[in-house]
């Protein structure tokens, strides 16, 4: 039965992620006073790109062609390892948070290598910036994982979520608040949103993630865009279920699964909307201020660890 949960989760993520991106840009556009395309627009664009001819630059090598597939596949794999609509997934006892975080990294590394293989300046520039952020983000991610694992005595995501379901009071602790704050920064940086990266810019010299995709066209570009949408939804879903696992059921009942899909969808929609609302009032940081933000996230994670170890939760 776990395979049904898995299928539901994959279908949920694949179909839902472009909608979340569409929703976020709809919200931003409306607040800015523009008429906006509806939330289905990213889906139309994906479909359009999948139907277009693919152009490969003659300077690029084989890795350039392989990278989008690897990125998409590793992101898809990560989405089979996170309790998004169910905590009953195949192999769930082996999905350690360190391991799953590694899958996100794997995707970033493949994309960066693909960008370097494009043989142009901008690919390398984007890769260099992305790798700097990855390198500096890694401590905050691991520190947050550490903080979360203390509560559950395990770094298995499913164990952490189960522990929260069992003892919901534990979440009301300073440690949780701190690690939540640290993870929010991680989510923003990982998904390349403001103030770290501006996904809507056309100024190549300022780009981070987009600079790596400049030479891509057709379905490889669609895969990259889709993968970043999936990554955003995964991170939002992960953060909501780590801290608010209500709506996940320890059962493989199909009705309950449907309910979980709806509740998780609502949680992700809510978080995405909040993110979009916050982004409207945000500008992009200068590139060398980003490390300070990430450093802040690390410190929050460190405080969270200390609090988890030495401060008891408010509610037992």
């Amino acid at each position: 039965m776990t395979i049904i949960s898995l299928c539901a989760q994959i279908v949920f993520i694949l179909t839902g992620s472009p909608l979340v991106v569409g929703l976020m840009s709809w919200i931003k556009n409306r607040i800015e006073g523009r008429r906006s395309a509806d939330v289905l627009q990213p889906w139309r664009e994906t479909r359009k790109l999948f139907s277009k001819q693919v152009l490969y630059p003659q300077t690029a090598g084989g890795f350039f062609r392989f990278a989008p597939l690897a990125l998409f596949a590793s992101t898809l794999s990560a989405s089979a390892m996170i309790p998004l609509v169910s905590i009953e997934l195949p192999f769930s006892s082996t999905f350690d948070l360190f391991w799953v975080v590694g899958f996100f990294l794997l995707g970033s590394v493949f994309l960066a290598l693909g960008a370097l293989d494009s043989g142009t300046v901008f690919g390398g520039m984007g890769a260099s910036r992305e790798m700097m952020i990855v390198a500096l983000l890694e401590p905050s991610i691991l520190m947050s994982v550490y903080a979360l694992s203390i509560r559950a005595h395990s770094s298995n995501i499913f164990a952490i979520v189960r522990a929260t379901i069992l003892h919901p009071g534990q979440i009301a602790s300073p440690a949780s608040a701190l690690s939540f704050a640290a993870l929010v920064i991680v989510v923003i940086a990982e998904s390349g949103r403001l103030p770290v990266d501006n996904p809507n810019t056309h100024l190549e010299l300022t780009m981070i993630h987009e600079a790596m995709t400049l030479e891509y066209s057709g379905y490889p570009l669609a895969l990259i865009k889709w993968a970043s949408a999936i990554r955003l939804v995964l991170l939002l879903g992960l953060i909501s279920n780590l801290f608010l696992p209500e709506g996940l059921f320890d059962s493989t009942n199909l009705v309950l699964l449907g309910v979980s899909v709806l509740i998780t969808g609502a949680k992700v929609t809510l978080l995405a909307s909040i993110l979009a609302l916050a982004e409207v009032h945000m500008a992009k940081l200068r590139l060398f201020r980003v490390p300070e933000l990430l450093g802040g996230s690390f410190v929050l994670g460190l405080l969270s660890v200390t609090a988890s170890l030495y401060l008891p939760p408010i509610l037992k």
């Binding site: 479909r47 790109l49 999948f50 139907s51 277009k52 001819q53 693919v54 152009l55 490969y56 630059p57 003659q58 300077t59 690029a60 494009s118 043989g119 142009t120 300046v121 901008f122 190549e204 400049l214 030479e215 057709g218 379905y219 669609a222």
Partner: peptide, 15 residues
């Protein structure tokens, strides 16, 4: 996607 034409190798955009 619908069926799309064979891919082509072209000069890079390179801004």
């Amino acid at each position: 996607g619908k069926s799309h034409p064979e891919s082509r190798t072209v000069e890079p955009w390179a801004c």
